[in-house]
Each structure stands twice: as C-alpha cells, then as structure tokens.
Design a binder for these strands. Structure first.
Lengths: 147, 147
DNA sequence: CTTGATGCAAATAGTTTGCAGGCTC
DNA sequence: GAGCCTGCAAACTATTTGCATCAAG
C-alpha cells in the first residue's frame, strides 16, 4: 500500500505526462477522493472540499472528475440512482451496492478476476475492464425494515 | 424460450397477483421492452410506443418502468452516461457496454454465475443479484476512430 | 506569453411530482 | 363505485456549457 503523499506525487506526474495542468483544485479533488472510503458523488465531494478551498465551485468539481475519469486516474461507479459516484483507481476490485441506502462497498475476488470470458467477447471489440456488481440490502437497512 | 404471447400472459398474471392494474399502457410498455434487444432508455421507448399509442406520455413510461423494476418484472441497467436503460428480466446474463456508442450487449457465462462470492459478503447483508459488467469499445467504434 | 482551467450564471437533460379526470377491478 | 393509473404541466436534480478571467507551464 502506497502512502498518501506518494500517491499524490504519482498523480502529479501522471497529470504532467498527460498534458493536464496541476492546479490546486485538481490536487485537492484527488486528495479528497484518496481519503474517502465512501465513493462520494460530486456534490458530497464539493461539500467536503469547501472546508479547505471555500471558493471551489461545484462545476469545477464536475469538470475535474470528468477529466480525471476520462484519463483513468479515477473511476466512475454507476449506481441504481443514476447519480455518478467516484473512487480513485486502485487495485482490481468489485462493488457491493445496497439498494436501500446506496452504500457502496469494495471487495476483492481473485477467482472472478481470473475467470476467462466467453470467446464471443473477443470478437466484439476491445475490452478494457470487467467489474462484478453485487446488489442487495445491507444489514443496517435490513434491521431498519423490521420496524 | 417462451413465446411472446406466453410471456405477456405471464406478465399480466404477475401484475394481478402483485395488485398492479393491467392497463393498456403497462402492457404495451412491457411488450415493447420484450421485443427490444437494445436495452432502450425511457425516452427511446416512448418514441417507439407512440406509434401504437400516440397519446402515451413520457412520464407514464417513466412511472411504469419504475414500478415494474421495483417489482422485479424488468431490470434497470446502469450505464456510464447516468442514463437509465431497461430490459425484461430474462435468464441470468451479464452486460458488455461500449464506452463509445453506449451499446449494451448481453452475454451468458455459467462459470461466473457459479463462482462462490467471498464469505465476507455473506455477513454484509442479503444479496439478491450479481452482475458482471464488462466495459470496452466495440468493433464498429474502433473502426470509426481510425479515421 | 499562451493555453488550458476556473468561477459564475444560465442552460440542459433526465426524471419526478401534484392534480384532475379516466379506466381497471 | 373506489382507488389506482394516466396525461398534462410544472418542479427538481444532476450535470453541462459559454464566457470572461486567471494561473500553470
């Protein structure tokens, strides 16, 4: 596991080699996402960022997230609420999503990673990512429902 | 593989047992989705439906899709464009999504279906669905890019 | 200095909701 | 006939975009 500062340094290097300017806002967006464990949506991230950067605008957050996702520095996670959520692109993992509260949890599963996809997919085009998404209702929500 | 009329009949039976009224609009929305192979979004479905039901409103399509998905009669498919798309809940399958044109293709993979998920997921809550989502760029889009 | 990034405000796009009338059960 | 469903219009929410200014390389 890399340290936060090492990851930030790597981020800046990546930006430079991609021709993206290393702005204060971009670094902070990335740092905030690096610290987050809850796959925040743009709006939530914006709220958190304003503590450090009171002037940062929501559309800059959107633009930054879109740009970073486009270059693969972060991942966009699809959710059932059609509300985009984000995470720093880390080790290969999959997602567990609660239909009730929307919580997204990561899990690793080397077996799934190792499964060979059907041959027909090879002729379809160029595959660059596979992700297992597991839906259900988390324990907290199951308890709430009993009332 | 069931015939279309058999599936429609089953749909009506399901609605009744769920306490949902079998309206003309609902049946047509379901039928249209049954015939579709492209996982249409609400808007596209609405366009198609207007050929048969010129008066059907877009919000009825939305309401119907939401209701049917809630009861598991159809599935909502998440996409990278945060635009909800739908399909009739058929046999267990997975999705292949083109990042460029948004095409969604189904594929079956018994091996993936059979993989036991890590134990930690059992304690998380109640799991009701697992789906592999494979992202890439389809051949048609790869060709376009070469120009 | 040049070009891309930001902040502001306004525009979009997808989706949801309140209400009155209509249709299923 | 009772209550859910529909159509219409308006509201909302998430996200995008045009433009002038500003800052990184």
């Amino acid at each position: 596991m890399e340290s936060v500062s090492a990851q930030l340094e790597e981020f800046e290097t990546s930006c430079r080699s991609l021709g993206l300017k290393v702005t204060h806002q971009r670094v902070e967006v990335f740092r905030e996402l690096l610290m987050a464990i809850d796959h925040p949506a743009a709006d939530k991230l914006h709220q958190r960022l304003r503590e450090k950067l009171p002037m940062i605008s929501l559309d800059t957050v959107y633009r930054t997230l879109t740009t970073l996702a486009k270059y693969g520095l972060i991942n966009r996670v699809e959710t059932p609420e059609s509300l985009a959520r984000f995470e720093v692109a880390q080790i290969r993992h999959h997602h567990l999503i609660c239909r009730s509260c929307g919580e997204i949890k990561d899990f690793v599963c080397p077996i799934i990673d190792g499964v060979a996809l059907p041959d027909e997919l090879q002729t379809w085009g160029k595959i660059d990512n596979k992700n297992m998404v597991v839906y259900g209702v988390c324990r907290k929500c199951l308890k709430k429902k009993q009332h």
